[in-house]
Computed example of a mutant assay.
Amino acid sequence: MTPAARAAAAIAILDGILAGQAAEAALIRWARASRFAGSGDRAAVRDLVFDALRRRRSRAALGGALSGRGLLLGLCREEGADPATLFTGEGHGPPALSAAELAAGRAPTPAEALDLPDWLLPLWHEALGAAAEPVALAMRDRAPVWLRVNLRRADPARAAAALAEEGIATVAHAELPTALRVSEGARRLSGCRAYREGLVELQDLSPQLACALLPEQGSLLDFCAGGGGKALAMAARGAGPITAHDIDAGRMADLPARAERAGVRIRLAAPGKVAGRFDTVLADVPCSGSGTWRRSPEAKWRLTPEALRRLLSVQGGILDQAAGFVAPGGYLAYMTCSVLSAENQGQAHAFLARNPGFEPVAERRFTPLEASDGFYLALMRRR
């Protein structure tokens, strides 16, 4: 596909997303209908779509319209490229720009330049203070790819060497050597031997740093396990026995295969069927995902005040429920992939206020400025 044809595909996909389609579903639908598109074409179109969603407000201002064409025109103007190179009006490229389109567009306002919804800006500034604008701007860029070295299978040096053999270059984190940032060859990961044999797992730096703050030994319940990444990380560090639970069992469907590949044992509990007490209970609750909007940029445009209020109610309920499984002297780890205070400190502090049998141990918030994704951990102990 030519650059112009890729732009035309991105425009059509973006128009579908703006009309209400989920981004992943729209991309899959296009790929299935476009058998002529090779893997490089699909990756390039995906990048165009996700980059446009990350910078939706600013590029719509630059391009003069909140539409697929407006967003791609905004891209050209942002990068100082000649729009005629994409809007060719020839072959499979987009139709040439009209006089009205060429005349439209302006510099984004300071609020638009942050690429966040207006209603969210006060909450963003309240939560992040002086870091609010730098974090918002960081969310406009693609997130790095991080791997976790599985110490059950390899040490960091061996894992890095195995990856390098297949053209995947990595850089170890200065404070957490088991965290490897992929600097080259990220798209080769799913098929590489180091991944297939369980030497490494995909996991962002921020949750890796958070898991490193948890007790390494003792029984553990991952109460909202999802795909089980944190349960796998804790198993690799020596915790156990480990039980994984999620109210939607389908989210854990791949966990047995992942655990076998990693060389660890994780017991799955049926939804609502957890029993007993645990030395550590991990509750990574449903949240706004505001810390991961570099990876899922459409989510920041779909979040509403009403949806956030519902999430806050769910989070408090899960936290109270998870606390019931903490053994005397055990730990409760409350986690979110959010940077918003109401979901983070607000929930943890409210829990401690209504549960005097728990005491705070540690509290950390991570942002793209010092880690990778936005992430929060409150570690509490039952007295």
Rank of each mutant, 00 (worst) to 15 (best):
P3R: 04
A4H: 11
R6V: 01
A7V: 10
A7W: 07
A8N: 03
A10F: 05
I11N: 02
I13E: 00
D15T: 14
D15Y: 02
L18T: 11
A19W: 13
I28S: 13
R32E: 06
A33G: 10
F36Q: 14
F36H: 14
A37R: 07
G38T: 08
A43Q: 05
D51P: 03
R55D: 07
G63Q: 05
G64I: 01
R69Y: 07
G70I: 12
G74C: 08
R77H: 12
E79N: 15
E79M: 12
D82R: 01
F87R: 07
H92K: 15
L97C: 15
L97P: 06
L97V: 02
S98T: 15
A100H: 05
L102N: 06
A103N: 05
A104K: 04
G105E: 06
R106M: 12
L121Y: 06
W124F: 02
L128R: 08
E133Q: 09
E133N: 09
V135M: 03
V135P: 01
A143F: 10
L147T: 06
L151A: 11
L151M: 09
L151N: 03
R152F: 04
P156H: 04
A159P: 00
A159R: 13
A159L: 07
L163V: 13
A164T: 14
A169Y: 04
T170G: 01
V171S: 15
A172I: 07
A172K: 09
A172L: 03
E175V: 06
A179Q: 07
R181T: 09
S183L: 13
E184R: 15
R187G: 09
R193A: 14
V200A: 04
E201F: 10
L202Q: 08
Q203C: 03
Q208V: 13
A212V: 10
L213E: 04
Q217H: 15
F223R: 02
C224N: 08
G227V: 02
G228M: 04
G229I: 09
A231E: 11
L232M: 11
A236R: 08
A239F: 00
T243C: 15
I247W: 11
D248M: 15
R251Q: 09
M252P: 00
A253C: 14
L255R: 02
A257L: 12
A259D: 01
E260C: 12
R261Q: 13
R261S: 13
L268T: 10
L268Y: 09
K273I: 13
K273L: 13
A275M: 14
R277H: 04
P286K: 01
P286T: 11
C287S: 03
S288H: 07
T292C: 13
W293A: 02
S296E: 14
R309E: 09
L312N: 11
L319Y: 00
A323D: 02
F325V: 04
A327P: 01
G329C: 02
L332R: 03
A333D: 01
Y334A: 10
T336P: 04
V339F: 14
N344T: 03
Q345N: 13
Q347H: 12
Q347M: 08
A348C: 08
A350P: 03
L352Y: 06
L352V: 08
A353K: 12
P356R: 10
G357A: 13
F358E: 00
F358V: 12
E359D: 15
V361H: 03
R364E: 15
T367N: 10
P368Q: 01
L369P: 01
G374A: 11
A378R: 00
L379R: 01
M380A: 05
R382V: 10
